Computed example of a mutant assay.
Amino acid sequence: MPTIDVVIELSRDACLAHYEGRVGQVMAHSLDGRCVVFPAEALRRVVTQDGVHGRFRLTFSDTGRFVAIERIA
């Protein structure tokens, strides 16, 4: 399955907007400069009290649908 490594920097308040459903998608930039859009509900797996900060690996199906998100070093 294809993967893309991205940097996500979202404050606690920005994450709250996603959590409350006011925002349905997240836009992030990959480490190689591409713009990537994925479902905001994916953030629930990686959000902390401070928001979402760091590098993450997004996994997509062969048809381009979001599958998973994981924190990377």
Rank of each mutant, 00 (worst) to 15 (best):
R44S: 15
Q49G: 14
V46Q: 02
C35H: 06
G51Q: 05
A40F: 08
P39E: 01
V52W: 00
G51D: 01
G51V: 06
L31Y: 04
A42Q: 07
V47R: 09
R45A: 15
D32S: 14
A28R: 01
D32A: 12
P39H: 02
D50H: 09
F38C: 05
M27F: 14
A42D: 05
S30P: 04
G51C: 05
L43W: 01
E41S: 14
G33C: 08
L43P: 01
G24N: 10
H29L: 11
L31I: 14
D50Q: 12
R45N: 10
A40W: 01
V37Y: 10
G33P: 02
C35D: 14
G33T: 09
V47C: 08
V26E: 01
P39L: 04
F38V: 05
D32V: 11
V36M: 09
V46R: 00
M27Q: 13
H53Q: 11
H29P: 00
L31H: 12
F38M: 07
Q25I: 10
V47T: 11
G24P: 01
E41T: 13
A28W: 02
A42E: 06
L43Q: 04
L31S: 11
R34H: 14
G24C: 05
D32H: 12
V47L: 06
R34N: 12
C35Y: 05
R45P: 00
H29E: 12
G33A: 12
Q25P: 00
P39A: 03
V26S: 04
V52M: 07
V36N: 08
G33E: 11
G33Y: 03
G24W: 07
H29Q: 15
A40S: 14
T48V: 08
V47Q: 06
A42K: 03
L31R: 15
V46G: 03
G51A: 06
E41L: 14
Q49W: 09
D50K: 11
H53C: 08
R34I: 04
V37C: 12
T48W: 04
R45W: 07
V46P: 00
H53T: 01
V37M: 13
